[in-house]
């Protein structure tokens, strides 16, 4: 009896080992590409963040923690007093706020759109999906300029609002945070729609039917039945919109009129005219650390939740 149990256990362990081996094999090609062109180069940046900035861009091979100091603290250029780097903090806060609002707007518009596509007859769904991506065949700069074009004072939006008498003078939207928000939502919305669609497409509407049979309201069905089941898609979409928004560079620069920096612009400045590569490296690693910790905490808790569900 005990012997068979042990046997079973070893069989189990064997199966598990086999599965792990399979998983690692499957991951290897992607990891190789990522190490070559993403994580590997990042190590260069880790090294750079501990060096001294070169006189004209680049780095000098002299050990220094100055860059990391500058991430959080500001040494006044005039009287050398040290204070918290409030410029960096306010830029971080603006980026987080705008990225959050972008994600929210993209969700509010993207979720119904994904739902709409997922409830079309199967043979037309791919067409609808294509319709979502067609505008993205023009590149990011073009799309950003398109938004600029429609929200300027004499643009389509203002002309229309003036015509129907909703306003009596043009709204000054261009070069405001609203413009950045609109632009980023426009630029990133497929990143929300497609993952939600991917997880919703297999949705079994019999469940909804059952819920209705139990006299659930539409809102309850949405909240209790549909949303929990498509959660992975919503999470994926939110990650895909929120994180790139944090580091966005082109859209804030063009639509924000460049008056206010976002994180992406701040980091770009260090590698460009600011000629402070170590600070740029340290700033981006800080961003990386914050986001990664958040992601890992999320994954871990999702795993735990999944585990408790399974058992």
């Amino acid at each position: 009896m005990s012997k068979t149990l042990a046997q079973q256990e070893s069989l189990e362990a064997q199966a598990q080992r086999k599965e792990v081996k399979r998983n690692l094999l499957l991951s290897t090609p992607a990891l190789i590409v990522l190490i070559c062109a993403a994580s590997g180069p990042l190590l260069i940046m880790v090294v750079f963040s501990f060096l001294t900035s070169g006189d004209y861009g680049g780095v000098k091979w002299e050990w220094s923690t100055e860059a990391w100091f500058q991430v959080a603290f500001y040494r006044d250029i005039f009287d050398d007093t040290v204070s918290i780097a409030d410029a960096h903090l306010s830029i971080l806060w603006r980026s987080v706020r705008l990225s959050f609002l972008t994600t929210l707007t993209a969700f509010v518009l993207g979720f119904p759109t994904a739902y709409f596509i997922a409830t079309r007859p199967p043979e037309t769904r791919n067409i609808w999906l294509f319709l979502v991506t067609i505008p993205f065949w023009t590149n990011l700069l073009i799309r950003t300029f398109a938004i600029l074009e429609i929200i300027r004072n004499q643009g389509v939006v203002n002309t229309f609002l003036l015509m129907i008498g909703a306003i009596d003078q043009p709204l000054d939207m261009l070069y405001t945070d609203i413009a950045i928000l609109l632009g980023m939502t426009y630029v990133y919305i497929p990143l929300m729609i497609l993952p939600i669609y991917a997880s919703m497409e297999r949705f079994d509407f019999k469940l909804v039917e059952a819920a209705y049979d139990l006299y659930a309201s539409r809102w309850k069905v949405m909240k209790r039945v549909i949303l929990p089941l498509v959660k992975p898609g919503v999470v994926a979409g939110s990650i895909l919109v929120f994180i790139p928004s944090l580091g966005a560079y082109v859209t804030p620069r063009v639509l924000g009129g460049g008056k206010n920096l976002m994180l992406g612009n701040l980091i770009e400045l260090q590698f460009g005219q600011g000629r402070n590569w170590p600070l740029g490296a340290a700033l981006s690693l800080t961003l990386l650390a914050i986001v990664m910790i958040a992601l890992i905490v999320y994954v871990r808790s999702a795993q735990k939740q999944g585990a408790t569900h399974d058992s």
Partner: peptide, 20 residues
């Protein structure tokens, strides 16, 4: 000519301050 590295640092600090 291009500014010296020290002056460039001050330029960057002013620029960041201006756009924070």
């Amino acid at each position: 000519p291009t500014c010296s590295p020290e002056v460039q640092k001050m330029y960057t600090a002013i620029w960041t301050e201006l756009q924070k």
